[in-house]
Simulated scan of single mutants.
Amino acid sequence: MVLLRGLLDVLFPPLCHVCRKPVPEAGELHLCPDCRGAMTPVASPCCPVCGIPFGTEGGIDHPCGDCLTAPPPFDAARGALVFAGPVQELIHRFKYGHKVHLRRPLALLAVEHLTPFVRGVAPDLIVPVPLHRVRLRERGFNQAILIGEVMARHWGAPLLRDTLRRVRPTAPQVALSAPQRRENVRGAFSVAVPERVEGRRVLLVDDVCTTGSTLAECARVLRRAGVASVAAVTVARAP
């Protein structure tokens, strides 16, 4: 079987998920060197709380102004890659183009960059950010669950798919300002079975963090349910 797969890769090399060029040494990601090189990891200096990268070269990590004046209800959040270029294209094709196979390379990129952070958090449970049932029917899948399934296998923590729920529909966040985003998701989530998360270390998972409003609201209701700690990871972080 291995020999057959190797022969097929030689005759019909896998294509890069982004540019569709042949990638003879595709590995698990199926990304060519050029597209991988165009993906920018979120790196220091950044805010150690919300994880937003600062637009400077060099320097040390330090809390951003927002986290100093209004600390979020989560302990820490990190994104793996800057939400731009090939990363943005892959996520858009995954979510809006229904290319669900892209959940694997996106999740593996996050695992590659965020494993040290997750090991430090040592989560007991992984909880995906939920979709409202109306949006779920429209899209057909919850992207956070699909990404979280891959992460859970690599990080060895169980994925709770239905404990955190979105109890009312919300407008798409993409066109809203930061204050509007916070108001849009206020009261939108609940914990169905608090006993499942009480006293546990929870890792929230989503595809993209822009202002952190959704993650913060999810963390707020998890705190009320009695979790011991809440951290969050996303594949991408908007600069």
Rank of each mutant, 00 (worst) to 15 (best):
G120S: 07
T234F: 01
V129H: 00
A76M: 07
R200D: 02
M39K: 00
L131C: 14
M1E: 14
A228S: 13
L102C: 01
D162W: 09
K99C: 13
L160N: 10
R103V: 04
P86D: 14
V197T: 15
T234A: 11
H92V: 08
H154D: 14
I126P: 01
R104S: 10
V121N: 05
M39D: 01
F12M: 10
L114Q: 08
V18I: 11
L164H: 02
D207H: 11
F54C: 01
L203C: 13
A38S: 13
P130M: 03
L109K: 01
I60K: 11
E198G: 08
D66F: 03
F12H: 10
M151E: 07
A122Y: 03
H113D: 10
H62C: 05
E217S: 08
R137F: 06
V221W: 08
A175Y: 10
L15F: 10
V10W: 12
P116Q: 04
K99D: 11
A219N: 13
P179S: 04
E198Q: 15
F189A: 05
F94L: 11
T211A: 04
F117E: 05
E28S: 13
P72G: 08
V42P: 00
G27K: 15
V121D: 05
V100P: 04
C209N: 01
L68G: 15
P33Y: 12
A84F: 02
L7I: 13
A225K: 08
P179H: 06
V10A: 15
A77R: 06
P45V: 06
A43L: 11
P14N: 13
C19P: 14
G199T: 14
L176Q: 07
G140A: 13
L215T: 02
C47M: 09
A77H: 07
E25W: 12
A236Q: 00
G120E: 14
Q143F: 14
C218S: 12
A80F: 01
R223T: 06
V235G: 02
L222M: 12
E195W: 03
E28R: 12
L222V: 08
R186L: 04
V2Q: 13
R36M: 15
L159I: 10
A122I: 05
S190R: 15
V191S: 05
T211Q: 02
